[in-house]
Nucleic acid binder design. Sequence first.
DNA 1: TCAAGTTGTCTAGTATCATAGACAACTTGA
DNA 2: TCAAGTTGTCTATGATACTAGACAACTTGA
Lengths: 242, 242
Amino acid sequence: MSIQDAPSGVALWRQVADGIERGIADGRFAAGEKLPGEIEIAETYRVNRHTVRRALATLAERGLVRAERGSGTYVETGRIAYPLRSRTRFSEIVGAGGREPRGQFIDASEQEATRELARELGLKTGAPLVRIESVRLADRVPICVSTTWLSAERFPDAGKVFANVRSMTKLVAHYGIRDFRRASTRITAGIVDATDATRLDLALGRPVLVVDSTDVDTMGQPLTTKRARFAAERVEFLVENG
Amino acid sequence: MSIQDAPSGVALWRQVADGIERGIADGRFAAGEKLPGEIEIAETYRVNRHTVRRALATLAERGLVRAERGSGTYVETGRIAYPLRSRTRFSEIVGAGGREPRGQFIDASEQEATRELARELGLKTGAPLVRIESVRLADRVPICVSTTWLSAERFPDAGKVFANVRSMTKLVAHYGIRDFRRASTRITAGIVDATDATRLDLALGRPVLVVDSTDVDTMGQPLTTKRARFAAERVEFLVENG
DNA sequence: TCAAGTTGTCTAGTATCATAGACAACTTGA
DNA sequence: TCAAGTTGTCTATGATACTAGACAACTTGA
């Protein structure tokens, strides 16, 4: 208890983390730059080095800094760090980075399941699907466009619902599903096509990260499958090496 | 850990306290009204009753609520709760209540110590004193006017210094005194006089609380003695019943 | 007067926070 | 190649936070 003597209800490591984050936000620590060493940070905040490490760990988890053993801890680039976990929520990831997430509905339509879509969703080929096109933004900058497919039978009027809530989490919540998780994720890359270029506000010829994924409910039942195209220059995916 | 599962670094009791304070600030809990019972609050926040009690204790200490055994916990009136402790700092008390403290210099002059002033300050009758008049405000509303006397020998040019720093704490700090405490406090009441009425933006005939107090340093040596006149309708003094 | 509901106080156990020290693993520059 | 400086990991200890249960002290209204 060195920063203030009356218990504040805010953990020391959190106060340190907030301090460093403020330093990054207001440019005192520039992107790519090396932070002071853990021992030096501990001295300036008058806390134990382990406390500093905990603060840095939370910042690293959120993608704001990156520690390099033997060298130092560096402020991450401006790219949005996008951890790929079984529990992946765009709004949470973007919000954790201190940016304002937003969803934008483009359009919805019905189509029949191709063999691949049917396999992903555990349906029969030709089953009725709802197809939703949407854009997701961070601080008004478009990050990715997504095409999402859902069973039209299980999620009637899913398109209209999504147009209102503009969030997949809220969409499935509308049908009583409180939780879901990422069952499979496949990442490739390509060149942006004309339609996506407009939607992403991206120049033609720029690379995109293409993510095919399927979400399942707590019972393992497939809910949605989607193909998202990320502006490569605006994100970086973090794969957990557990 | 019920409000969120990942450790946030913010103690539960603090989250509850912040929630209740927000409720008071935005009028969800009106002044004088009874808060929900501790058990009910515990249920809504999904925490233990003891955790709620800790949250309420901090709010009570800051004067925002008042607990009545057997009856309930009530939102305090709009009056500034002014705890009278040995360590009393206007700026801290007002700041703790979520208001912005400010000091205003009126004028300073020299005078000789009367017998009463000399006794309070541990000086000889007729010793040279500096007399400082000031107003203290909370959120731009004047709360009290004070007349402060100090030894002119120990605190040369105290008037000029105070005009700059506008804070007794900073004034004595200027002379190397890092800490002081309230040695004696005497409270009476009266009717505002014409001069104070203007300074307090108070109608003539309104009551004032008159507080005579003497501050001493850590060695018990008297530093300042003062007479403060508080607009009675804007404060209430809390006496610690320890 | 009494029952229900309220705040106050005590004990106890578990989890988290914070400190401390030591050493390993690694990078960098001389 | 080596020394200095860095992050990573381990053990250990005490303080604080949170939960849980029980009961006392008090207020209110029937």
